[in-house]
Structure formats: C-alpha cells, structure tokens
Design a protein around this nucleic acid. Structure first.
Lengths: 232, 232
DNA sequence: GGACTGTCAAGAGCAGTGCTCTCGAATTTG
DNA sequence: CAAATTCGAGAGCACTGCTCTTGACAGTCC
C-alpha cells in the first residue's frame, strides 16, 4: 500500500472517510433503504454528483458499510472474549452478550448485514472474511477444551457429515462432524434470536428478552457440550 | 359483513383483488423495496393516482401483502400437519419442512415478514394473529403428548419463568415454563435457519442446506422432548 | 324523469431519488 | 512551464410516492 503523497491524495482520503462517516450516521437514523446519496452530499456541503468521484455507486458505498459492520460486530465479539485463561462457559456467555449488545446498539447496521439483503445486491468477496469473525470467536472457545454434550443428538445425514467435516477442515478446527453440526446450530440460534428481538417478533412474547437470551446462551452451551464450570 | 350489492361494489372488489395480485407478482420479482405503485398501475392499464382510491398508501398495500404472507406460511404449516393420529416427531418434521419449503418458494414474501422490517414501518394489529399460526401449529404438536426432554437444561431465570408461564397461559397451553422456554428456542431456530439459508449466510457453509435442516429439525425435536418414535 | 350526490380514472404537478455528462478550475506531473 | 489528471458544480434523464383538480359516470332521492 502506497503512503499518502500529495495534498490531493490526503484530501481525497479524508473526504472518503467523511462520506462514509456521514453515511453511517444517516444509516443509523433512516436505515439502508432511506440512505440517500443526495442527503449525504447535502450534509457535507457538496453536490451529489461529486460523491461519484469517491464511490462509483450507492451499492459500493453500502458494501463498504457492510464490511465495516461485519468488522465491528466481529471485533465486539473478539474483545468480549476474556481469553483462554477463563472458563469456557464464561467466555461463551460474554461473547453472546457482546454480539447482542452491539446489535441492539446498531440495529440498522445489524439489519444491513443480517437482515434481508437489499434486492439485486450480491455480497462481494470482501465481506466473507469479516463475516466469519463472530463465528470464529465462538469456535475458538469451543476448541479450547473437550466438548462433552449431554446428549448425542440425532444421527447426521451423510450429506451433512461430509459438509461438516469439510467445514471443520477448512477452518483448521479439529472438531468432529457431529460437534461441528452442533456448533452450526448454535451459530444459527445466536443470530436467529437477535434478529427476532430486533425485528419485533418477540414483542408480546419474551420482551424484554434479556433473561431469555441468557437462558438461550446457556442452553446452546449445553448443546455443544461446553464443560460445566458453574457459570450459569 | 354486507354482501356485495351494486355493480360498482363488485367492480371495486375485483379491482382491489387484481391490484393485490399484481403487487404480489411484482413483489416476487423485485422484492419489497422495488415494489412500485406506478409499475403496478401501469401493468393494470391504469394511472398511478387511481390506485389511491383502493389503497391509501404504499404501506397499506404492503401491510395487506404481509398479512397474506403470514396466512400463507401459516396455512402451509397447518396443511402439512398430518394430525393427531400421527407420531409427533413425524408431524414436527413435516411442519418444519413445509415452512422451509414455502419460504424457499416465496423468498421475497418471506423476507417481507421475517426479514428486516421496512424502515419507518410499524406492524399493525392485523398482523399478530396471522403471524402466530406457524407457532401455534408447532405448539399443537408439542401439546399432543407428554414432553420428555433428555436433558433438563439450564435453570430458568425468574424473569423468564414468569414470561414463559404467562405466555403458556395466554395461549391456553398447559406446558411448564421450562417446556415453553424450550419451545421458544426451537421457534427461534426454525426461522433463524430459514433466514440464514435464504439470506445467503449458509453459502460456503452448509449449502445446500437440506440435510442440515432435517438434522436441525430432529435436534430441536430432541430439545423439546418429543417422544422418540423412530421417525429420524 | 330529472336533479343531486358520491365515486371513479385521468392528468398535471411537486419534491425527492440514483446516476450520467459536460465544463471550467485547480492541482499534480513530466 | 506546459500537459495531463482530478476535482466540484450544474444541468438533465428517468424514475419514485403522493396530492390536487377535472370531467365523466352510476346510484339515489324527489
């Protein structure tokens, strides 16, 4: 990566940051659908066409915000992990809570990455690595010791056995296919629950969802077989 | 409800149906964001302003489509249930598959009801009863016999205990709070998994998700404690 | 039967959108 | 210093949801 040289480059980098910042601010207020390039430009005192010197289209700007959001929620998860010195269930719960906390603080950004995709929008390559950070953090905890699920669970269909093995290998994790499948369940559960809470499905059901969420995190720790350490 | 009387009323009812039909068709093609009143009117050979005689705003039209979608997925779940004469795990799996099947056939409608809500849009009262139909169908299966979870699971926080009891009472179900909490987990899991599949999170993970989904349904049947009957 | 009333589709128009193109000015480069 | 590049501004296109007015029609009351 070349260092910033000329004054023009410097101004360009700064303006790019400002545009993204203002866009993120508006995203938090009006959501992805309501994000308007003209409004961003207006707020920055420029004209809309000038924005196209920095982002070739609205989708490109959105993509950058998506990558940022994946990184932010992933970083929240990583920072919440107290590390290998701590009991696994404690780490697990801390990460779950941090992910939920970030989502509740940034509902529109969460919707951007885990809600229904913007129609016609296809996630580019840049997003897949940042998107994996939360899952990786959870996987780290699960891989820190032996998994001892209380219940063997249903048998794995051959197709799933193969997918789970390949996935574990691809991630460099030495979990069995059954362990991996159980981890996939908990991964789905984490974001399913946050989505339900944020998108209003828990209204009149389990709202506020704080207690249910903790219970859910503990249940999923049971399911993957994190060793009991008195955290709950 | 008064019967349709005059020719004018008849024409009005028919046009209302036609508008909704065309809107649903376009929804399936371009998604909720892309749904344009002008395009609907154009396709119907009328002018956009005429639509406002039938639906006071775009949001009102969307709301009707949302109610329809909730009813459609609920009906799919209900129709898939072979009924009390069949083994509970069989019924459970059939319902899960039907819900997923409907979602895959109508991804945009699914996104409309279980994706991120359209910004600034607040679900009106009319949607809550239809929205409960899938959950009710699953609850019926769980209530058809004794639940015997293999694993007691973590203790319920007092707040959740109270919420779950109130929820069971409100639904006229005689499940314990712990059973109810476990059912909530599976309910979340069902829609979490479908959302992940539809919105692309399972790409390069467990795609195709058929095997994983069946495994997931069985795991959740285990979790709620549906009696084993050799279905898996 | 004729007048009245409410309903209807159509059209023009407003304020907003994403995006493209051109033009003159500023800045960097050779 | 001159050439090349980059920049912001502005006009303009095709589109959106929505409002208001206009003129035609149907149903109803006298």
């Amino acid at each position: 990566m070349a260092a910033i040289r000329t004054a023009r480059d410097r101004a360009r980098a700064e303006l790019t940051r400002e545009i993204k910042g203002e866009a993120r601010r508006q995203l938090g207020e009006v959501g992805a659908n309501g994000l308007s390039l003209r409004a961003v430009a207006r707020e920055l005192g420029m004209v809309s066409s000038a924005l196209y010197r920095y982002f070739p289209s609205r989708d490109h700007l959105l993509t950058e915000l998506i990558v940022d959001a994946y990184n932010a929620i992933g970083e929240a998860a990583e920072n919440a992990d107290p590390g290998p010195g701590t009991a696994p269930r404690r780490r697990w719960l801390d990460i779950w809570r941090a992910v939920r906390g970030w989502a509740r603080q940034h509902p529109h950004e969460y919707a951007l990455i885990y809600g229904s995709p913007v129609p016609g929008y296809r996630a580019p390559e840049d997003t897949i690595a940042p998107a994996a950070r939360v899952a990786t953090a959870l996987l780290r905890v699960a891989g820190s010791g032996p998994l001892t699920p209380a219940h063997p669970g249903p048998p794995l269909p051959p197709e799933l056995e193969e997918q789970a093995s390949r996935l574990a290998a691809g991630l460099g994790a030495d979990h069995s296919a059954a362990d991996m499948a159980r981890l996939l369940i908990t991964w789905t559960q984490l974001f399913g629950a946050i989505g339900f809470e944020l998108f209003g499905q828990y209204v009149n059901v389990v709202e506020p969802a704080d207690a249910f969420f903790d219970y859910l995190a503990a249940s999923m720790a049971d399911l993957v077989g994190l060793p009991d350490d008195g955290t709950d």
